[in-house]
């Protein structure tokens, strides 16, 4: 029995592998393993990111509206988009929202993170308190802020009345609706940024800070010449995630104002949603999505340029 299982090894001439061949073979194996491990993520990205992006681009050149028939319209949707006043309003509002919310929330988060990086009493409480808005569902946050902004019984007007100010109409006043939403957006986005900044601050070299102290550097000089440069990569990360987050703001606006009054708080994603699922103009909404993707890319590119300029300085 065993004889049948045993095989005589074929007489082969032993190959002598050179070190270079050895390493190439090893690298090939590593590459194969790398692809194998990457494949689930790649498959996921292909199904949920690449295919939808391609579909959105293709649909943007059609007049598809869930009906039986559709036709190629070339750049017709793009031409119509720039004639559409709701889109123009959404574009302006989104850029305004991003331009205000991103720098203010980044600056505030950094300031709070620096504060929380000190040895102060109740550190755990403050860290938790600042992070709570981030883990709270946006719909719940928006509902609470709706009450705060309520013109007749809200906390905001109650607070203002203590100082003799006239009550504001906040979300129903065209002049204050968008700034009121920006305030909520800034407040809600602080937590995540604070945590990232806090981690980065704790990674700043103690040796460098100590050396700077020994050289007589002031607090501000230490921050400007040691801490700030060390935060560079983190700043870029926070900037990119903030750009994506602010351009994709939807739930807050949907719950609090539905884009009103008029189009004062209409933002791109809300307009895309309304065009796609309320007006059922999927081709038109896809063109709007493509524009939004390009806009996010441009803003991230600008952020990268700023980052490079900062590093070169």
């Amino acid at each position: 029995m065993s004889a049948t299982l045993e095989r005589t090894a074929p007489a082969v001439t032993p190959r002598r592998l050179t070190p270079a061949k050895d390493s190439r073979k090893l690298i090939r194996g590593q590459v194969r393993a790398g692809w194998l491990f990457l494949s689930p993520a790649l498959l996921h990205s292909a199904v949920f990111i690449v295919i939808p992006v391609i579909a959105a681009v293709v649909l943007s050149f059609t007049d598809y509206s869930f009906g039986d028939s559709w036709a190629w319209v070339g750049f017709g949707n793009y031409v119509d988009l720039f004639k559409d006043q709701d889109f123009r309003a959404a574009l302006v509002n989104t850029i305004l929202y991003a331009v205000v919310v991103i720098p203010v929330s980044m600056a505030l988060s950094l300031a709070v993170a620096i504060g929380l990086n000190q040895k102060i009493k109740g550190l755990g409480f403050f860290r938790t308190a600042f992070y709570i808005p981030t883990v709270t569902a946006t719909v719940a946050v928006a509902t609470i802020w709706l009450w705060i902004y309520n013109p007749s019984s809200g906390l905001a007007n109650g607070f203002l009345s203590l100082f003799g100010f006239a009550p504001g109409r906040w979300l129903s006043d065209p002049n204050t609706a968008l700034p009121s939403l920006m305030l909520v957006g800034i407040w809600q986005g602080l937590g995540t940024k604070i945590i990232i900044y806090l981690a980065a601050l704790q990674g700043v070299s103690r040796d460098l800070l100590e050396s700077a102290s020994l050289d007589g550097a002031s607090r501000w000089q230490k921050f400007a010449h040691v801490t700030w440069p060390a935060l560079g990569p983190v700043q870029f990360f926070v900037l990119v995630t903030s750009i994506v987050g602010t351009f994709q703001v939807f739930d807050l606006v949907y719950v609090m104002t539905k884009g009103g009054p008029g189009t004062e708080t209409t933002v791109l994603v809300l307009d895309i949603y309304q065009n796609a699922f309320q007006a059922l103009r999927l081709g038109f909404a896809s063109a709007e999505t493509v524009i939004m993707m390009l806009l996010i890319a441009i803003f991230i590119g600008l952020g990268r340029l700023l980052q490079k300029a900062d590093v070169n300085d």
Partner: peptide, 21 residues
Amino acid sequence: ANWLEMRANFDSQLTQAVLGQ
């Protein structure tokens, strides 16, 4: 036939007219 599209247009544009914008 395009009422679903017009509904949102009415919502935003009538408000703009009423608020004097």
